[in-house]
């Protein structure tokens, strides 16, 4: 690097003005600021998450709840109208769309196992 025609007097003054400063206080302050910054960042992140969840609940909460109610009502709909007698109460666990779906699912699983078993046994 060249001296780029620097003024010798100014160079010496700049060199003389350079002080060796005690850094314990400043270093401690910097470290404290990095710590507090990290805490602020964490607190900010937590706050943002809470805000996000609250907003999501406000925006989607009611529609989701309504949807859940609708689904449960549909699933609980009786397949055959048996009135309100003892027979209706007796067959209530199987006389719903939900029970029909469960039975269909079970039958499907059994059929799948049988098909799989048959296909494996052919080898």
């Amino acid at each position: 690097m060249t001296n780029e025609d620097r003024d010798p007097l100014l160079q010496s003054l700049f060199a003389e003005a350079e002080q060796e400063l005690d850094g314990s206080a400043l270093t401690a302050q910097v470290m404290a600021r990095t710590r507090s910054f990290r805490l602020t960042l964490l607190a900010g992140g937590a706050f943002a998450l809470v805000l996000l969840l609250a907003t999501a609940r406000l925006v989607f909460g009611v529609p989701l709840f309504d949807f859940a109610v609708l689904i449960s009502e549909v699933l609980a709909t009786p397949l055959v109208n048996l009135g309100e007698g003892w027979l209706a109460l007796l067959l209530l666990p199987v006389n719903t769309i939900a029970s029909l779906l469960v039975i269909m699912f079970k039958a499907l699983r059994v059929f799948q196992k049988k098909v799989a078993g048959a296909s494996f046994s052919s080898y």
Partner: peptide, 22 residues
Amino acid sequence: DRRAFEELVRRRQSSMRNLMRR
């Protein structure tokens, strides 16, 4: 590594403060 960073600050603080003073 925070301790390494702290050491860097300790080493550089004087020249940095002098620069900012100028």
